[in-house]
Structure formats: C-alpha cells, structure tokens
Design a protein around this nucleic acid. Structure first.
Length: 455
RNA sequence: GGCGACGUGGCCGAAUGGUUCAGGCAACGGCCUGCAAAGCCGUGUAUCCGGGUUCGAUUCCCGGCGUCGCCUCCA
C-alpha cells in the first residue's frame, strides 16, 4: 500500500483507491506556447515513475493529463509573431510529446485539450453564476472566493494571509472584483482575440476552469489523486478545488506536489531566464536517462539542482548499470530465474514510503554490487536471481538499461581478432585493435571468456 | 508582512533520539588483468552557529546566521 504525502492534510497517508485495483490520476499538463523546460521534465518524470511503479505492482492506472491550448501567453505569442495561434499550439504539442518520448515518459491514458471542453466550461460557469457563487463584470466572470468556506486549504493560508503581501502585481480585472482574491472563470475577449461564444460575452475560459471540468468529466467526482508542481498548489489547484467545492462536488481525494528544479544559486529555474537550458537541449546533449537517474536519487518533494556535475555523475552511474545489464542479459532473459524476493520486498517498502526513490536506488546499486560479487565468485544462480531483481526494479521505475544491442559484423570481427591476438600473446596487435575499437566509440571489455564490446 | 521549505563528507544526496550518518560521483590502497577497462575487497573525510530538553541530539524545542519558495494564471 502506497503511502504518499498529501498537501491538503500535510501528512503522509495511504493513497486510497476509489475503486480497488484502479487508480485515477489527474496531472496538470503543459501550456503549449514554447519549448518545455527542465521543470516540466521533472514533473513528468516524477509522475511517470509513480505511474510505472503502481502499474508494476498490478494497479491499473488511468492518468489524465491535459494540454492547455487556450492561454494568454499563446495569444500574445501569436500576435507578436503574426501567425495563427493554432499553429503554435500544434507545433508545441508535437515538440512536447517528442521530448516526453525522449525521456521515456509514457503517454497519459487520456490527453484532453482545453479547446475541446469550452462548451462544458461555459455550462459549469453558468451553474456557478446561477447559484450565486460567481458574478459577471464588464471584463469577465469571477468566482467569489468568500463563498468557499475553506478557500486556502492547499495554500495552508486563510484569505487574510493570502492578501497580506503580494500587492504590487498587475491583477487581471482588479478594479471590477468584489474581493481581490476572486479569480477569472471567463475573460471577455477584446477585438481580434480568439473567442468562444458565451451568454455573458464571447471570450475564453480561465485556466483554472479547464482542469476542473476536464478532470471531473473524465475521472468523475472524488477521483483519487491530483498532482503537479509545487507552484500549482496556489493558485491553480486551490482555484480548481474552489470551483468544485462551490458546485458542491467532491474533488480530488489526495494531492501530490513535486519540488522545483533550481539553478546554481538555488533559485527556481523558470526565473533565471537567461541560462535556461531547456529540456530539448538536455535530451540532445546528454543521455536522456541521466535526468531520470538524477531525479531518482533525489526525493520528489525536495529541490534539485541540474548541473554539469550532477548530470555527469548520473551518466557515469548509468554506465556501471549498463555494463551490468550487458553482463547479465542472458541470465535475465532466462525465464526460469526468479527475482530475489527479499530485494523486491525491500524495494516495495521503500517505494511505498512516499516514493522514497533515493533509498530504492541505494538498494538497486547495492543489489548490483552483490550480483557482481556473486558472478565473480562463480555463483551464477545467485547472480541470476539478483540480476533479475535489478531488471525488475528498473522496469518499475522506467529505467532502460542498454545491453549489447546490434554489433556490426566488422566490429565483431575486430573483437575476435583481438582475442586471437591475445591468445597468440601478440599484445601489441591486441592493444592496437583495442585502441581502434575505442576510437570508434566502443567500450571494450576483455575477459578470460573473450572480448565483448558495447556502445 | 503571512505561510512554508532547507542548511549533512571533495561534489551530489538520503536517513536517524543512542553500538558503524545510505547510495551515487570523485580520491586512495589491494585483488583480478599480459597491460588496461570493467568488476570485487578495503580506506579516508560531514551533520551552519549558540542555547535548552535528555543519561544521550545531527535528529526534538528556542534563538541567530544563511539560502530558497508561494502569497492571482509558472511543472
């Protein structure tokens, strides 16, 4: 049974399932107006690990993650670049899923688009107006937060507290609102802006209305888990919840939020605009698995710094795991080998403890070491069972290890020539062949059993 | 101003009221190897500061210093 920190109660508690064996998750997806950044990568990787682990334990997961394709930032960019906004959203969505593929993040089971749900949003906003929880002004429709008794639950603040500080920003519709914390459900469009019809004026829905409508439509009331980055806690998730509460509906049962990616100074990445290595750069320049590895070695709620040193260390640790995988691929493929049950039980305990991946990884590396030691000692049965456990754990966390793969014929010939040279004690020739192979980018391992190469 | 998080070895990063503070990366010694690499065995180095509670605190409490986040649309 997975125990997970719940933002609403500020405690680690069991993740209950509305329907036994089935888990419903809503994850706030990207607003498609630009390339994904490292923070997006972290969020999706964290929840990908969660999903894969749950599925690995036999739970059927329905993961709904939206695409926000209506937003001021999209409209602004379209205007600035003088091109249709649909062109931007389509392109950005393609780039997004390419990046996800690069990270080995499984596609959500459902990917609703905000543009597909405008009618439902209009309907919901109409209901909120009808029951006097929302009101119209000249520029839009607002939810009256004072009518939501526990507004501030996720922010862990009351209304006064929320208002105490952040006064200096420009607030949409500030002069028309009844209460400063009221938020826009609908924004009436200005001439030339994209708009959808609505009884109170053509316009576009506010961000918070999308997610509440899509999550309730696809997952229904009282779905199991709502997740996203820390920064969505307030106002986005608070406001989603406020709408559901105002409608008298049961919303998410459990709330999960992941920590930020920070820069070298410890500041949130999205703020340091200059040096944002975006996600695409990371995938292009490094082994994409390194980011997953780095995040697995950090607790999901803590901050993580993504730097050269970190990523390099992750790449190197992966090299060790790849070497192990190559060494044990035969044993792992042998269906008669059963994975070490003690190891898997410990793995489950650690993962069930609020997704304690750092400790799960410590176990993984320790198991690799034990398996290598068994192999060195000639204990192939013991090594096989430990190796099978390693492969099982990797599956559960979405880490794909490289085995030999395809080796071109000429490379294989060079490897056997190397062995022949060693057998003939012509070490000069053997060294030359090894250097040549390494020059071609192959890792060469010469053992008593012969030479093996891999990328 | 309100709410909150954090400060652990050379670097990253877990955990914990008490014999040895995980793991990764790096370093060093050894085994293995024709030599390497990989692997294995072993070694060293850490809990921001000051009080308090306690038989005992890195862990709990108070204060300080430092860093960061949220406080109306950023994962």
């Amino acid at each position: 049974m997975l125990h997970l920190f719940d933002t609403a109660t500020q405690t680690v508690r069991p993740l209950a399932m509305r329907e036994p064996g089935h888990l419903s998750i809503y994850l706030c997806g990207p607003t498609v107006y630009g390339p994904p950044h490292l923070g997006h990568g972290r969020a999706t990787l964290v929840y990908d690990v969660l999903r894969r682990y749950l599925e690995w334990t036999g739970i059927q997961v329905r993961l709904v993650s939206n695409i926000t394709d209506i937003d001021d930032k999209i409209i602004n960019r379209a205007e600035r670049e003088n091109r249709p906004w649909q062109e931007i959203t389509r392109k950005c969505e393609d780039v997004w899923f390419d990046a996800m593929k690069g990270l080995n993040v499984a596609r959500p089971t459902d990917v609703p688009h905000a543009t597909e749900y405008v009618d439902e949003m209009v309907e919901m906003i109409g209901e909120l107006i009808a029951i006097d929880r929302a009101y119209t002004t000249t520029d839009g429709v607002y939810l009256s937060v004072e009518t939501v008794h526990d507004y501030g639950l996720l922010a862990n603040q009351n209304l006064e507290g929320l208002l105490a500080g952040g006064g200096d920003r420009e607030v949409f519709g500030a002069e028309n609102k009844r209460h400063p914390a009221d938020f826009a459900l609908w924004k009436i469009s200005k001439p030339g802006e994209p708009s959808w019809p609505a009884p109170w004026g053509d316009g576009r829905p506010g961000w918070h209305s999308e997610c509440v409508v899509m999550s309730l439509d696809l997952l229904g009331e009282g779905f199991d888990l709502h997740c996203g980055g820390m920064d969505l806690k307030f106002p986005h998730h608070e406001n989603e919840r406020a709408q559901a509460v105002a409608l008298g509906k049961t919303f998410a049962n459990h709330w999960m939020h992941n920590g930020f990616v920070v820069d070298a100074e410890g500041e949130k990445m999205s703020k340091s605009l200059g040096n944002v290595a975006n996600l695409l750069d990371l995938i292009e320049h490094y082994d994409a698995r390194a980011y997953r590895m780095l995040l697995l070695q950090t607790h999901y709620r803590g901050p993580v710094r993504v730097g050269q040193d970190n990523i390099d260390a992750a790449v190197k640790s992966l090299a060790g795991l790849d070497a192990f995988a190559a060494r044990t691929s035969a044993a792992a493929a042998d269906g008669s080998v059963t994975a070490d049950t003690d190891v898997l039980a410990q793995f489950g305990e650690r993962m069930d403890d609020d997704i304690d991946t750092p400790n799960a990884m410590a176990l993984l590396f320790d198991t690799v070491r034990r398996a290598n030691a068994a192999l060195d000692a000639g204990d192939h049965a013991g090594a096989g069972s430990l190796a099978a456990a390693v492969h099982a754990m990797c599956t559960a966390i979405g880490l794909v290890l490289k085995t030999e793969g395809d080796i071109p014929a000429e490379i294989a010939e060079m490897a056997s020539a190397l062995d022949a040279a060693r057998a003939a004690k012509d070490f000069a020739a053997a060294d030359a062949l090894r250097a040549q192979l390494q020059g071609l980018g192959w890792l060469v391992e010469t053992t008593k059993q012969g030479t093996s190469v891999r990328r």
